[in-house]
Simulated scan of single mutants.
Amino acid sequence: MAQGLFATTASELASYGAGLETLLIVSLSTEGALAAWWTVDGWALLREMGSGLDLRGANLSGGLLTGADFSGSDLSEADLSRAELTKSDFTGAKLVGANFSGATLTSATLMNAELTEANLSRCDLRHSDMRGTCCTRTAFRGADLWNAYIWNTNLDESFTDGVDISRADDLSGAVKRKTA
């Protein structure tokens, strides 16, 4: 990030083309002088404290976020492409328009998440828990749903080209699917 630029939200940080790999946290005194500063591994911070955060528009592309807790967070329009999200928790998260293309979500929890218009193309969703997830106009093209739990999930408005839905566990065909 260029000198003199200041961001207080993930969305502002992303607007500068910066991600959360390394964060510089600065504390200023009441007079505006530098009081203290820390360099933080942004991935480690998010793995531990990601629950309930406003991460709209954040650039988390390629992030090493195995086991991260994003439950209840707002990651609308965030870029999580190619991110390592194995065993991460997105329970109740708002993921509207988020880009997960090529991400690894093996054994992740997406229960009751809002995935409207999200891109999960070429995602590894094996063993993920997607029960009750809203998938309106969600792109799953080429995703691997082997043994993913998709109970009470409506995929009839989703884009599932190149996806073998029969590999998912849908409680004996209870999932609505788009027909040709």
Rank of each mutant, 00 (worst) to 15 (best):
M1K: 11
A2Y: 10
A2L: 09
Q3D: 12
Q3F: 14
L5A: 08
L5V: 01
A7D: 00
T9M: 03
T9N: 03
S15A: 10
G17I: 00
A18D: 03
A18C: 07
G19H: 04
G19Q: 05
L20V: 09
T22M: 07
L23F: 13
L24W: 02
V26H: 10
S27L: 03
E31P: 00
G32R: 10
G32N: 08
A33E: 03
A33W: 08
A36N: 04
W37M: 10
W37C: 13
W38Q: 15
W38C: 06
W38I: 00
V40F: 15
D41Y: 12
D41I: 00
D41F: 05
A44Y: 07
A44D: 07
L46E: 01
G52V: 00
L55Q: 07
R56G: 11
R56S: 12
A58V: 01
N59F: 06
N59V: 01
N59Y: 07
L60Y: 12
S61P: 01
S61F: 04
L64M: 13
L65S: 06
T66H: 13
T66N: 10
G67Q: 07
G67A: 10
A68Y: 05
D69P: 09
S73A: 15
S73Y: 04
D74V: 03
L75M: 01
A78E: 01
L80N: 09
S88R: 02
S88P: 04
F90Q: 06
F90M: 00
T91E: 05
T91C: 14
G92N: 03
A93N: 10
K94W: 07
L95K: 09
N99S: 08
N99R: 03
F100G: 06
S101L: 04
S101F: 05
S101C: 14
A103P: 02
T104F: 03
T106K: 15
S107G: 09
S107M: 05
S107L: 07
S107I: 00
A108H: 09
L110M: 05
N112H: 13
E114I: 04
E117L: 14
N119H: 13
N119W: 09
L120V: 03
L120A: 08
L120Y: 14
R122M: 10
C123A: 15
C123S: 13
D124V: 02
L125R: 03
L125V: 01
R126E: 10
H127Y: 08
S128F: 02
S128C: 00
D129T: 06
D129M: 02
M130T: 05
R131Q: 11
R131T: 14
T133L: 14
T133N: 02
T133Y: 05
C134L: 13
C135Y: 11
T136A: 14
T138Q: 12
A139I: 03
A139H: 01
R141Q: 14
G142S: 08
G142T: 04
A143Q: 09
L145P: 00
N147G: 10
W151A: 07
W151T: 11
N152S: 11
L155S: 12
E157K: 15
F159C: 11
T160P: 11
V163S: 12
D164H: 15
D164E: 14
A168M: 02
D169C: 11
L171Y: 07
L171T: 01
G173P: 05
G173I: 01
A174T: 06
K176P: 12
R177S: 12
K178W: 12
T179F: 15
A180F: 11
